[in-house]
Amino acid sequence: MSRMTTTLVTGVGVLIGIGFLAVILTFAIYYTGPGKRADTDTEPVVLENTCTVPLGHNYTVNGSDIVIKRGLQVYMVTPADPCSVQGAVILVHNELGYYSKYNRFVAMTLAKREYTVAMPYFFQDGSFGLTQQDVHRKIDHTLDYLREERNFEKIAIIGYGWGGTQVARACALYRGHIKAGISLYASNVSPEMALAVVVPTFFIYASNDDGVPISDVIGIIELLRVANRFLPSTEAEEAALNGSPVSVQIFENTTHAFANTGDTMNDTSLLMTSEGTFSAMYSWLEYFMTSESN
Rank of each mutant, 00 (worst) to 15 (best):
A180D: 01
Y31W: 02
Y145D: 06
F105Q: 07
L173R: 09
L96V: 14
S84T: 13
L25T: 09
D216P: 01
T142M: 08
V67K: 07
D39Q: 12
G126T: 06
R229I: 06
Y282L: 09
V67W: 11
S100C: 04
F202D: 00
L146A: 02
I214Y: 12
A156R: 00
V23N: 12
R169W: 10
F278V: 07
S187M: 06
M1V: 06
I66D: 05
A236M: 11
T78P: 05
T26E: 07
E235T: 10
T261P: 08
I139N: 03
P200C: 05
S283H: 14
N58P: 10
R113A: 15
K101E: 13
V61R: 03
F20V: 05
D209A: 00
T261V: 11
T268D: 10
I250S: 07
N58Y: 14
M193N: 10
T255W: 07
A28T: 15
R225E: 06
A259C: 10
G181T: 03
T273G: 02
Y30N: 15
E286C: 03
L55S: 15
Y287N: 10
P232E: 11
G243S: 14
P54M: 09
D39M: 06
G63E: 02
H256A: 04
Y174A: 05
A107I: 03
F278K: 07
R147Y: 02
D41G: 13
T165A: 10
P79T: 01
T255V: 10
M76Y: 04
T50A: 15
E149K: 09
T201H: 00
S127G: 15
R175I: 01
T52H: 13
N49I: 11
E48M: 07
Y160Q: 06
L143D: 01
I218R: 11
Y287D: 07
T131H: 14
